[in-house]
Design a protein around this nucleic acid. Structure first.
Lengths: 204, 204, 204, 204
DNA sequence: CAGTAAGCGAGACGGTACGTCAGGTCTTGGT
DNA sequence: ACCAAGACCTGACGTACCGTCTCGCTTACTG
């Protein structure tokens, strides 16, 4: 929850949790169904049945509302199994990210980044709440491969993450496909640079 | 020019080239100065002195106008020297792309992708007119390295391009820095996976 | 017409006379039917079918719109016969004013004065366009009585007008009745002070 | 006090007299300072420091609050000396009324009548609590003149009151001046019709 | 003197209207 | 046929008040 992190407002009527949920769910559904075009505070108000003023009371702008609903409702089911083969783990991670963004939620994720262009705060929230956790998860997967000696000891984990997250997201934004074969090809290419020299044979 | 590709307008007053240029330049300047927020047909009309109706006659929507001005005015000065070391060529290419997007034009490029989320046609234009040429240029650079035997013969050139273009663009969109040291680190990481096994030693 | 008195706007699409009439008529009808409470730009827009922005383009505030519709649509049918008995002429004038204000238009006239309290410009328009002509008409009637010798030569015509216009309007505003017997009583009282001393006998 | 005349609320915390005074004083001051425009329950709440709910608990609408503050705080200092010359008494009365309304309190009095247009109850209160006492006071002054034989025996006292109260109030509402010379002229005119025929000479 | 009913402050809630802005269409007159 | 100007409708914006409501706290009469 990005809004209203202040703690104990003991005075006054408490905020309605129902209204909150209705707004976030409606906002998310709207982004999913209609995309960025028909997303407006008015539309969210109509769809959720929550008064426009109530929405404005909590969310200062539609950018913030959009990302808030995204952070609250987007659960990418990241497949980050840490056991097993480090390469398979990475493939699974990238594939699950791509699959999540290829589905209906992809429109939401794309819309959020689009909205973020008009608001530095939204950008920050996106980085901290979405991009950050995703990167941390990825770093754990890659780090395990390094620790096991499967990946090079001097692997620049952060740059590998830059590469595949950026590639997936960019293709989402420009409307290119995110199917499994593309994911595999990308992982093949990246993994070549990840493997330790000796011992392990990572032949394509 | 994305608009008005039809051929034989033999009758009537010919369209004013001045108006066209004024609109495109103003649109670009507006995107550069103010970002996506204050970009509107109205604002372009005011800034350019060209009537709103004239703009509408030529550009069907502001998304198309935005990308059209981008395509017309954004000249990234891609440093694509094809002589010299293949690795240095790639570094120079990535660095020049990052430098162009880190500057004031970056806001325009980001705004265009944001706008593209609402219009498939804009997405298509972005891919065909911006992304496509950039990839072709990059493919030539990488292909030269393959041909010279410096890069692996089975290098998946397109995926490497996905990786660095995506990484650069994604960082632009989420507001992360695009400085030279980051570019170098990214290239270091990617190049490891590009080099042919024998002969050339590209140890970091 | 209080708005848009400037002359020759030769450029651009001319303003729609239909829209103008629809707005003024709807505004008047609204004031007549609902009184001051439900009078709003929104309501006028809905009732007239004219877009809110169009209304704002022409009328700067609802006070001005109210008085404009009043001035345009309120035609009090002032019975200002100048022939015949000066006393009967005055009675007829006062009676017709009272009758007009006692009817449904009275709510409009009251609402206009109420609105005028928030805007000096509206007050000025009310004085110039409504109060002024009414007083001039009245002055002619009273002046004819003075000229004929029926009314005192030193009659302060303007104060007599103050008295009966004020009395009628004040009773409208406080909700007192304006029936014929009250009008007659008021005129009886005022006329006593108007008659010339000699000759004429205006005993009640 | 117009509100809450019911009697025995013996249980519970008694209503705060401080809150009551703060609200009425603030409401009056607000009407005096800002006029009808910025008069709102919210504004009164802010100015008085009394919670909005407390105000709503006592006053059903802002019209009622306005007139209540008016009735409570407006003390016109009516100069109703009953000794001395009947004509001077009337002049003093009218002059004091005009003086009170010409001052800052005039805005309040005007606003109250304006607000009264939306509520019959407010109109009634205005008539009963303000207009009524004023008329009774005036009737006493005029009646004394009749009793002393200075004014005509068949003088229609109520109509004379209609005339001068209406004249004064109407001029207040349309923004005309209420200075002493106008008051004198009005009284001159009205008094002509008041005087008994014989004996007394009221020549101007 | 403890309960308790009501007052009080704060502030959320669903509304309506405000006045502004942009989008996209249209109707003029002038070039 | 083009252009500039500007009207028009639509609809979203963010704000201000409206009147109602739910809280937690306070107060003073009452049993």
């Amino acid at each position: 929850m990005a809004e209203a992190e202040e703690e104990h407002r003991a005075v006054g009527r408490p905020r309605s949790e129902l209204a909150r949920r209705a707004v976030l769910d409606s906002a998310y559904a709207l982004l999913e169904d209609e995309g960025i075009d028909d997303f407006s505070i008015d539309a969210v108000s109509r769809r959720s049945g929550v008064a426009r003023t109530t929405i404005y009371r909590r969310w200062p702008s539609k950018s913030v509302l959009a990302i808030d609903s995204f952070l609250e409702c987007f659960r990418p089911q990241l497949d980050a199994a840490r056991g097993g083969d480090p390469e398979e783990n990475l493939r699974a991670l990238v594939a699950s990210l791509a699959a999540a963004l290829a589905g209906p939620s992809g429109r939401v994720a794309a819309s959020v980044v689009a909205h973020a262009q008009r608001d530095a705060e939204t950008q920050r929230l996106f980085r901290e709440r979405f991009s950050g956790p995703l990167r941390r998860e990825s770093a754990i997967v890659l780090g395990a491969g390094v620790a096991s000696g499967h990946f090079r000891a001097d692997l620049d984990v952060e740059r590998v993450i830059d590469a595949f997250v950026g590639a997936v997201y960019f293709r989402l934004l420009v409307g290119s496909s995110l199917d499994r074969s593309w994911v595999d090809a990308l992982c093949d290419t990246l993994l070549i640079g990840c493997r330790a020299r000796g011992g392990h044979d990572g032949g394509l």
